[in-house]
Amino acid sequence: MAGRRRASRHGVIALCLLLVSLVACGGRPASDTARADVQRLLDRRAAAVLDRDAAAFRQTGALDWFENARGVPFAAWAYRLTGLHRDGATATADAELSYRIEGYDNAPVSVGRTLTLSLDAGGQWYVDGEKPAEKSAEQLWDQGAVTVVRGEHSLVLGAGQPTEKLHSYADLADRAVPAVSKAWGADWAGHVVVLVPTSLEGMAGLLGSPASSYRGIAAVTTGETGAPASAPADRIIVNPDAYGVLGSVGKQVVLTHETTHVATRAATTAATPLWLSEGYADRIGYLGSGRSPVQAAPELWQAVTEGRLPAALPEDSDFGFSGNANRLAQAYESGWMACRMIADQWGEAKLREFYKAVGGHKQRAGAVEDALDRVLGTNLDDFTARWRDYLRDQLD
């Protein structure tokens, strides 16, 4: 009797293991065989993208966004299956997509994708649809057909935008790159990638954030602070709604500002306060524009003339896009005036050195104070007093 009970328990365990190998936990995740089959499907799909082979792509399933992305110069495209949830003849796949744009990305851009799959009568998996994974940003080709324009120092990708307009962005970027290199130096990529979606909502989709966060913002630059040379290229993402209402000078200032962020990315770290990173980008953006402090800093000018002189440099929280628009404008203008003052009183070379010294600090605490002492020979109290005097002199 005892022997039979032991044999029965072993049989139950073996049966459970067999069931787990077939259906896994709860019957949702797929078998290893299905995972391998789907990974091979995704590998064929990736090869079709790189080969720009519509027929081969169609053999993996629906054409979906394929034609939208066909003109983008991809150097690499690969999927890594991270999850597969099967329900009979259908499944949902979670995958990490990694791609590189030829001549611009030194490392892959990685994004999450969700694919819906189905089995045909012959037991082959096909992709019925592909979209950004939950909480992952859209890609430009998710929004429509991508037009590609190459400049001397730029690659402009637009969705739903006329080619002529995209050429105007390339012209602006091609003027911005040499201007930034002249001010910052040539120790950066020396070219930029500009994405122009159809609207503010398209911009928000590319950033994976609500549109309300960027209303009135002409452009932003994506990228990892302190990124090494092996990082993917930053993307300058334009809000065509806000950018379109700017004059020619304003458009150039914005593109040069964003290009400065690209150039300074490796020297910009968690130790760098936003008043310095945004102020320096504005400093380079406004160089040669002919704009006076009163013209370029209207919110700060109004505050100074009304006797509301800022007591201190702006905090990072003052730069929130979703906050008060006047407060945001004054924060940018305050950072710009601080960098302008350093250039006026210590020189452009010292401004660059100061920027790099702050970013080279191991942590935020003490970064500005240490750089003020080592590079400019001053302290935070003296610097703040000088800055306030400078505001009175330039804006009152």
Rank of each mutant, 00 (worst) to 15 (best):
R308W: 10
V220A: 12
G202M: 07
S212F: 09
S213T: 15
V193I: 13
G279H: 01
Y243C: 10
V294S: 14
G202F: 05
R308C: 02
H257S: 10
L276S: 04
A271Q: 03
R265K: 10
S292N: 05
R283M: 08
Y286T: 13
Q302A: 14
G202S: 12
S199V: 06
V196K: 00
V196E: 01
E306Q: 15
S209A: 15
S230M: 03
L200N: 09
T222L: 08
L276K: 00
T259E: 03
A296M: 02
S209G: 12
A219Q: 10
S230F: 04
M203F: 03
T269L: 10
L200M: 12
R265Q: 13
P232E: 02
I217E: 02
S230C: 05
G190K: 02
R283D: 08
P273M: 06
V193Y: 00
Y286V: 11
L276F: 01
A227F: 07
R235F: 14
T225G: 13
E306L: 13
P210G: 13
G279A: 06
Q302I: 04
G205Y: 00
L200Y: 05
V253Y: 07
A218T: 10
V304H: 01
V245N: 05
G285L: 09
G226N: 13
G250W: 01
R291T: 07
V254I: 15
E306M: 11
G216L: 02
A242F: 11
V193K: 00
G279Q: 02
P210R: 01
A204M: 00
S248C: 00
T225L: 14
G190L: 03
V304T: 10
I236H: 02
G244D: 06
A303R: 11
Y214S: 12
A219E: 08
T269K: 11
V193W: 00
R283I: 00
V253C: 06
R283S: 12
D234N: 14
G208F: 02
K251S: 09
Q302G: 10
G190F: 06
R291N: 08
T221F: 02
A233M: 13
G250N: 09
L274W: 05
